[in-house]
Simulated assay, not measured.
Amino acid sequence: MSKVIAVLAAASLAVGLPMGASAQQKLVVAGYGGSFEDIMRRDVFPPFAKQHGVEFDYMAGNSTNTVARLQAQRSNQQVDVAIIDDGPMYQAIALGFCAPIQNLPKQDLYETALYKDDKAVAIGIVATGIMYNKKAFDEKKWEPPASWDDLKDPRYKQQLVIPPLNNTYGLHTLVQYARAAGGGETNIDPGFTTIEKEVGPNVLVYEPSPGKMTELFSSGQASIAVWGSGRVKAFADTGFPVGFVYPKEGAYALLSSVCPVAKDKSHPLAQAFVQYLVSPEVQTLLASSYGYGPVNRKAQAQDDPNVPLPIGERAEKLIVIDWDTVNQNRDAWNRRWTREIER
């Protein structure tokens, strides 16, 4: 771990931005909870904090919660840097919450990582696919799941977990079933019908919490779920026997993204921290520790023997949804989801 800290400290030095931040002035970062928060607190924050003399205040929550926090604090923003999934990030940008990123090393970043006007940048590529308990499947002599249609199999009754629609994994699931039934982002009805009538009977719970998701698997209550490759890798790294499948119809792309929050008095280190997150060293760390597909070409990414990571050809084949259409309809879809699916 000391080697990791040293390398990341060098990365924060390489950013070459202000060194004189007051130690009393905290840098407020809003981002995901669960294993992602653990990695940030343990490996990512300390080198930057030590190098720049700043303390971190981390506000954990899913992307929808973070955007809601930004809206609630519009007149007095507390958050300095926001880490949000790509869909909600487009909303945050449209609502004016993101400031342009300065000195972004575009020459080192994959084009898919970039946002218009540099209002945000991706810090990792995640695949939305299917997680399953290898041990439970072996004991029952079940073949690993291979298709989104497998989630309809009655053998999984009350053993399936899907995040709700306000979570990107849940949204990807809805869009997939809509597309498979002849609809899509512009005709979402078939997706609701499929989930309600064919997938829903197998669902134990629509669970948004990463901690609760792993608890449901650890306790044996759940054996199969829709989840992201990064979170599955972090779970597998604890020693739990989970596998991850890229369904034959295609897995979906989720871009974990970051932006410096637009505010009257920006923290002097907000821009530096964003640059630090896309540095080769941090990108290598997030790939190895969290399973992100790196966005920096100079990062070193090795595949994982337990959880195939979204790198190379797998990353290229990921399905990207139409976020413009989704964001225009998402509030209505969320209300419908509550009314029809989680009633």
Results as ranks from 00 to 15, higher is better:
V121E: 03
Y115P: 01
N187R: 11
I162A: 02
K152G: 02
E55Q: 14
V245R: 00
N166Y: 09
S229W: 02
F192P: 12
M59S: 06
G87R: 12
D331L: 11
S288K: 14
A299R: 04
Y177V: 01
I224E: 09
G87S: 14
V44D: 05
A315V: 07
W337P: 03
K248G: 00
W227N: 06
A82M: 01
E139M: 09
F235T: 04
G291R: 12
D264E: 15
M19K: 14
G34W: 11
P260S: 02
L17F: 12
F217N: 02
I5M: 13
Y115N: 02
P105H: 10
M131W: 11
A180N: 07
V274T: 08
L165Y: 07
G31L: 13
Y156E: 04
K3W: 02
Y246D: 01
V4C: 09
P105E: 06
L95S: 11
E340P: 10
L269F: 01
G243A: 00
G20F: 10
L216K: 09
S75F: 10
N329R: 13
Y177M: 04
A253G: 03
A262P: 00
A236S: 10
D85C: 10
N334V: 08
F45I: 04
A122Y: 08
D331S: 13
Q328I: 04
L204R: 08
M213C: 05
S209K: 15
D153T: 11
